[in-house]
Design a protein around this nucleic acid. Sequence first.
DNA 1: GTAACTGTTCCACTTCGATCGAACCGTCGG
DNA 2: CCGACGGTTCGATCGAAGTGGAACAGTTAC
Lengths: 104, 104
Amino acid sequence: MTGITRLPHPEPTDVALTDVLFALSDPARLEIVRELAAGPLTMAECGVTNPDLPKSTKSHLMKVLREAGIVRNEPDGRRRLVSLRKDELDAVFPGLLDSVLAAD
Amino acid sequence: MTGITRLPHPEPTDVALTDVLFALSDPARLEIVRELAAGPLTMAECGVTNPDLPKSTKSHLMKVLREAGIVRNEPDGRRRLVSLRKDELDAVFPGLLDSVLAAD
DNA sequence: GTAACTGTTCCACTTCGATCGAACCGTCGG
DNA sequence: CCGACGGTTCGATCGAAGTGGAACAGTTAC
């Protein structure tokens, strides 16, 4: 059986700007987004700056980013590939992600 | 005596990006920022979309915006003039405010 | 002076979000 | 099969933030 657990991913057009801003307003979440700007990562790979962060906590942080339409999380074998939905986000909120990532 | 109550205003350079994003992540606060984009307003004037918002609540919303370096609040007679610190904010986080205000 | 006006601060209450262990689920290797 | 692995979900706890009435403070009008 294809018990593939695909997580819900809202269309960025359905996400409120305030939800995006809120998701980015947490240092740990913002750091994850910065890491993902260089390319997709598995869950285990990202969060390098917080090495001993419990996996349940990291999963929750990722859930907020995913539900804000910022990140895509798709199964890949027994891991999960996380990637930034940059193009889709740019289409709805032009320049937002760039200005956030540009800040030191 | 000049008992002028000047409220503390942090330099935008001293404010973390996440604090700015958080301040903007609330619908009521974001709405106030949108109104202020057209020009300075008194406390009584801004918050038009939330007409019957208690003044203590509105004052608290404004405090968050002020402490995030987004807004200036200066005494003017017996009222207070609130203005957007656009130039100062642009200098520290280029394009951020514009992209936020550009979104419908 | 004193009263009305504009806003801030204080306080208590409530709601929301962060955190993390434990249980659970799908996948791969033997 | 079965165990190890990579992640998600659940549930409880805790601190942070929103809310709003009441008291307070500065300013102006009378």
